[in-house]
Design a binder for these strands. Structure first.
Lengths: 192, 192
DNA sequence: ATTCGATTCTAGCATTGCTAGACAATAGAG
DNA sequence: CTCTATTGTCTAGCAATGCTAGAATCGAAT
């Protein structure tokens, strides 16, 4: 059975290669530049190989989105674990979120702007996405305030961060005031 | 000179027809369904005619976005003018914004999600967009709180609304709690 | 009625996502 | 070591997309 195992390892390695290449290409030139032909050429296989791993381009985007969700959850937890009190923690969380979005625009797009064919806000939601939301909830639940449902509060805070991230990235908001906007958001929304 | 005038009138009418058709098609089946061929067929002209009015699909999206900005500004002002105090006014504003986004998803996409080739946050920004932001500022400036720049506050509030609108529309947030989220947002962000 | 300029259309290009069917490599049996 | 059957990969192609060149047609002014 060792032959089978080797093949599966190689197949898994190639799948990782596809995803890493797609992500790299998307970060370099945007998702529009991630065509099946270019992607195939970069991994040095023909296009149909892509379709033996993923149903199509959408599913590739979805896979990158899941990778990103895992990383984002880790980044958020790393940022908040170093903080002392609730206030520093929430500020660190907000900064880490916006920083992740700014540093990985293509991955952020895959997660929240593009159609990756992923389910959201129901029981079919993939684990990494639920976990990323959980990472937000861990720090935000404690500053929701009395009588306010932590989940609802987290949704609102998240939406605000998402709005800041996307509008800034699209050039709708001047980038230089990001820090001041973040502070204002935390000051007002969080009950400390 | 009457011939020239008639021709210009007809040309302007056709341009309105193109935009109305594009918008209708986008609202019915999404912007992906707005192909130059389908659009040309619906207006009963050939595709190249579209390019005598607009540089390309992007510019059509941009034109729809500007139309939408004008309408949104009007909708926001209509909603806030009926309100008595600052609190009712801000709540009405938030509701009107989210309502506009929910009722005109394709137009909202054209304004904020798609690339319509429009400038933002600088002096080249088209008038309708600046005016829509001004409509937000009119009601939000008075609840920014002492020592907080009204423009910055408006940006943050707007970003939060934008996040709620897009995440809800993309199925990332359950729609039924929209009203509670709106109330929470207003309660926390606005200084009354 | 004819000419000439503007307008509109036909036909086509290159690119996209995706797939069918031909071809090649390889594992396992003899 | 050879043959076969399965598994994997590639070549070639489809329909759809945005956009454009050049032909054809229309209409206003002479």
């Amino acid at each position: 059975m060792s032959v089978q195992e080797r093949k599966e390892r190689e197949r898994a390695a190639r799948e990782r290669l596809i995803l890493a290449t797609a992500r790299e290409l998307a970060e370099q030139q945007g998702w529009d530049a991630v065509t099946t032909r270019r992607l195939a050429e970069r991994i040095e296989y023909s296009q149909p190989v892509l379709y033996s791993h993923f149903r199509g381009k959408r599913e590739i985007i979805g896979a990158v989105a899941l990778e990103g969700a895992t990383e984002m959850a880790a980044a958020l937890r790393a940022a908040t674990s170093a903080a002392g009190g609730p206030r520093t923690r929430v500020t660190a969380l907000a900064r880490a979120y916006l920083d992740f979005a700014a540093r990985n625009p293509a991955v952020y797009d895959a997660m929240f702007q593009l159609d990756g064919g992923l389910a959201f806000a129901n029981e079919d939601t993939p684990e990494p996405l639920k976990d990323a939301f959980a990472a937000l909830l861990e720090s935000l639940g404690e500053v929701a305030g009395d009588g306010v449902h932590p989940g609802l509060f987290t949704e609102v805070f998240w939406a605000a961060l998402h709005g800041l991230a996307t509008l800034t990235r699209a050039g709708r908001l001047p980038p230089q005031d990001t820090e001041r906007r973040t502070e204002l958001l935390v000051d007002r929304l969080a009950i400390l």
